[in-house]
Design a protein around this nucleic acid. Structure first.
Length: 805
RNA sequence: GCCGCCAUGGCGGAAUAGGUAGACGCGCGGGACUUAAAAUCCCGUUCUGGCAACAGAGUGCGGGUUCGAUUCCCGCUGGCGGCACCA
């Protein structure tokens, strides 16, 4: 058969769509399988090859599952709120709504051209009111349950995007959207209490099938630490300065305290601090430094001693000085530390620089040179002297502190609460109302969706407020509680809001009574397999798990964890081995590839190019190799003969069924395709195959190259009514007995070096194998005149003569 | 600095309950077809030596365990990812 991809691809895409071949059926009796890919942001640039690779794994699995008799949900939608559309709107003065819908249209056409078997009837976009109504609904539930709070603290702020960012949005001190340096500003911000869910997010990882690297990254990001809070008295005041420490047993070694430059104790005792000018100068210097400078570049210890204010070591009763220094962060612990210079290198460096005494309390190391951070016997520590196990000494000290009422156990997380409001237009309006009498009140549920009003100008205001603040008709409202005049919140939700629950909407996308019908959620959830990028592990993945745990706690969903299994794909690099970028000119447009070589070639190549989880450079030559393979597949129709099954070919077919089936399950798509290439090579050598051989081959290849295999399926007469699709046929099964070879080729070694090869029965007895080995001319040469010390025979694997002399 | 991962031909990569290293593809060399080229097909292709049979070396480096190590252990080197003055 001749392979004309340009003709057959649109033909079958239409046929599948007309027959609703990929429609997921709610409550069907077949076992369900929910495969999910990270729905795209519909950017103006359209689809990237990265999308093809990211989606192809679940695509292949979904097609295989349908053939295996599963009721498959493989949905697609669009994550369509966000800054790029808004920035483009500002530049072109076009409404982001118009741009977004146009991009969705374009993106959908591109995805369809590749032949992904999505159930398009469930498509939605997060920027449409019928969707964001429910994003707002979940937000109100969070508010109702006390998980939304407002606080004026130091937050990450991107001066370029003019927007407050969460910690997750500013990893490495860079804005996630524009990559410029993030600064710290005191702002009045809405937070979601994700830290309340830190333990649940950690514990949940024990019950899901995620790669170890993904789990480790989430664990590190949450950063749970167990320790002790200890109160230090401020001298001559009935006031305390609380610190957090993981080594409360070193309390006898505390010779000073350090507070962060932003610590409130400074302003509180301003009148008593005799060197206030110096303190103020230092604070201003710190404020000027970017987060990057403060945490990464400047490792030298700087600081200022606070004159006129000191503290009392609660265990020794001694007066100790208080410093401010920027190596202590306001955002972690209490913003104040007890310094143990003998056993903490940072405190040690600071003590040396500021000439503070150093008291050793753990035996070991050389304190004259550096801090000793190892374990050892407690010394100079009163009742702790003689303890050698830190677990015991910490427990003893905690007990003591507890009795005295000056300290208690506690936990700390590196993860911070989720700064949730954005001073931008193109996002979900936050459904809250500020009433001068009643405080903050949620918009009543029956008034949702709170629609995003039209504006003329999408630019964020110079006052740091969102464009919504300039619309009096939106801002001014009545309080739902008291009916008095009130004002609406004018900030919008962050990019991540809509994607934090979208997998639930796919269960029931057109419901206008609930975010999804409970019965449908119970039928489809959890997601059986979710594939996506590593870059989302501490962003989208964490956020969506948080929301889902919350929805579980309030009884809205049936499982705490949304995703049973998570995998990730490696990046597709440019042909030069560099990350694809416009400036490097190494970008591959998947649509060009589809036009030139066909979607099946693109799909096959992307799965064949290397290990799925690893990055691999693009190669036009290798792509052509995949096209060549598909051309040969089309040619198989020429060698189909009406003849009895050849046992040798049959064995190869059965082995291939096993290999391809297993490899797809293990995401080893490259070797699955390699096995099919090997099989077609065997077919070619034989020169003739049965129709049944071809059918099996087509079924195995169908998930990768669905259009070509569908066309051949029809060509050989298997689709008489136009609806009996190869892609919905049954997945081939294999007979284990037929995958086993009667004879095996084995290497024969002498002292571990291969000296010959024998072919014998797989289960040949040892004597027979040894005799065959000795009979090998080359082997005999090496055995001659030597004493055989040992004969090793591992059936089917190896024969080894160990000789001496 | 800490945590995790990785290192195999000219290239992408196969093979790890320890058992003939280099499957499959690309590239390259040779041949067939063609007036010629492309396409296609056939043969070869880890390196060194040899017409060949075969021999030696070989999975980042140095050791170890073993009849046998790409695979396991110890110590390095290089690279990737994450976190980072986290108390």
């Amino acid at each position: 058969m001749k392979y004309n991809f340009a003709k057959i691809e649109p033909k079958w895409q239409k046929a599948w769509a007309d027959a609703e071949a990929f429609k997921a059926v709610d409550f069907d009796k077949r076992p369900k399988w929910y495969g999910l890919v990270e729905f795209p942001y519909p950017s103006g640039a359209g689809m990237h090859v990265g999308h093809i690779k990211a989606y192809s794994s679940i695509e292949v699995l979904a097609r295989k599952r349908r053939m295996q008799g599963y009721n498959v949900l493989f949905p697609i939608g669009f994550d369509s709120f966000g800054l790029p559309a808004e920035n483009y709107a500002i530049k072109t003065n076009t409404h982001p709504h118009i741009i977004t819908e146009k991009n969705i249209q374009h993106f959908s056409e591109q995805l369809k051209k590749v032949g992904f078997s999505f159930d398009w009837s469930r498509e939605f976009a997060t920027s449409r009111p019928d969707y964001y109504k429910w994003t707002q609904w979940i937000f109100l539930k969070l508010f109702e349950h006390g998980l939304v709070f407002r606080s004026k603290t130091l937050v990450n702020y991107c001066p370029h995007c003019k927007v407050v960012l969460s910690n997750e949005d500013s990893q490495g001190g860079k804005c996630d959207i524009c990559h410029s340096d993030v600064i710290q500003l005191p702002k009045d911000v809405w937070f979601l209490r994700i830290t309340d869910y830190a333990d649940k997010l950690l514990e949940g990882l024990n019950h899901v099938d995620y790669p170890e690297s993904v789990k480790q990254q989430e664990i590190a990001w949450i950063g749970k630490s167990t320790g002790t809070f200890v109160d230090f008295l401020v001298k001559d005041h009935d006031d305390k300065l609380e610190v957090y420490t993981t080594r409360c047993d070193t309390l006898y070694g505390v010779t000073f305290m350090v507070v962060a430059p932003e610590h409130p104790i400074l302003d509180k005792y301003k009148s008593e601090i005799t060197n206030w000018d110096a303190v103020e100068v230092y604070r201003q210097e710190c404020a000027k430094k970017s987060e990057f400078e403060r945490t990464q570049l400047v490792k030298d210890k700087t600081g200022v001693k606070i004159e006129g204010l000191s503290a009392i070591n609660p265990i020794t009763g001694k007066e100790i000085p208080i410093f401010i220094a920027d190596y202590v962060m306001m955002g972690y612990g209490t913003g104040a530390i007890m310094a143990v210079p003998a056993h903490d290198q940072r405190d040690y460096d600071f003590a040396k620089a500021f000439n503070v005494p150093i008291i050793q309390v753990i035996k070991g190391g050389d304190i004259s040179k550096e801090a000793y951070t190892g374990d050892g016997e407690m010394i100079n520590s009163g009742f702790l002297n003689g303890y050698t196990n830190k677990k015991d000494s910490i427990a003893k000290m905690q007990e003591f502190l507890g009795e005295k009422g000056i300290g208690h156990k506690g936990v700390q997380y590196k993860m911070k609460d989720w700064a949730f409001n954005r001073q931008r237009y193109w996002g979900e309006p936050i459904p809250l109302i500020h009433c001068p009498k009643c405080g903050t009140v949620g918009v009543p549920y029956d008034e949702l969706p709170l629609k995003l009003p039209d504006v003329e100008n999408f630019e964020p205001g110079q006052d740091g407020k969102s464009p919504l603040a300039r619309i009096p008709s939106f801002v001014n409202c009545t309080c739902p509680k008291c009916g008095g005049p009130a004002k609406r919140e004018t900030d919008t939700m962050p990019q991540w809001a809509g994607s934090s629950w979208y997998f639930l909407r796919f269960c029931d996308p057109h419901n206008d009574k609930a975010f999804a019908d409970r019965k449908k959620i119970e039928y489809w959830m959890p997601v059986d397999h979710y594939n996506g990028g590593m870059e989302h592990v501490t962003r989208h993945l964490l956020y969506s798990r948080f929301w889902h745990h919350f929805l579980y706690d309030i009884g809205e969903v049936n499982t705490p964890e949304p995703y049973a299994k998570r995998t990730y794909q490696g990046m597709v690099l440019g042909a030069d081995g560099e990350k694809m970028s416009k400036s490097k000119g190494n970008v591959i447009d998947p649509v060009d590839i589809v036009d030139q070589y066909g979607a099946d070639t693109l799909r096959t190549y992307v799965m064949f190019m290397g290990d799925y989880g690893s990055a691999a450079p693009w190669s036009d030559e290798s792509l052509k190799g995949c096209k060549r393979f598909l051309d040969r597949v089309a040619g198989l129709t020429d060698i189909v003969k009406d003849m009895p099954e050849d046992p040798d070919t049959e064995a190869k077919v059965h082995k291939t069924i096993k290999k391809v089936s297993d490899d797809i399950e293990n995401m080893k798509f490259n070797t699955a395709i390699a096995a099919l290439m090997t099989l077609i090579n065997d077919f070619s050598k034989k020169g003739a195959i049965t129709k049944s051989d071809l059918e099996t081959f087509l079924k195995l290849l169908s998930p990768f190259a669905p259009h070509l295999t569908e066309e051949i399926w029809e060509f050989i007469g298997n689709n008489p009514d136009g609806k009996t699709f190869c892609t919905l046929s049954s997945w081939p099964t294999y007979d284990e007995e037929k995958t086993k070879d009667a004879t095996v080729k084995m290497g024969v070694q002498v002292n571990g070096k291969v000296r010959g090869t024998i072919e014998i029965a797989a289960d040949a007895p040892k004597e027979e194998a040894l005799a065959a080995g000795r009979a090998q001319e080359n082997v005999a040469k090496y055995l001659e005149g030597k004493t055989i010390v040992k004969e090793i025979y591992v059936p089917g694997k190896i024969l080894n003569f160990v000789v001496r002399g």
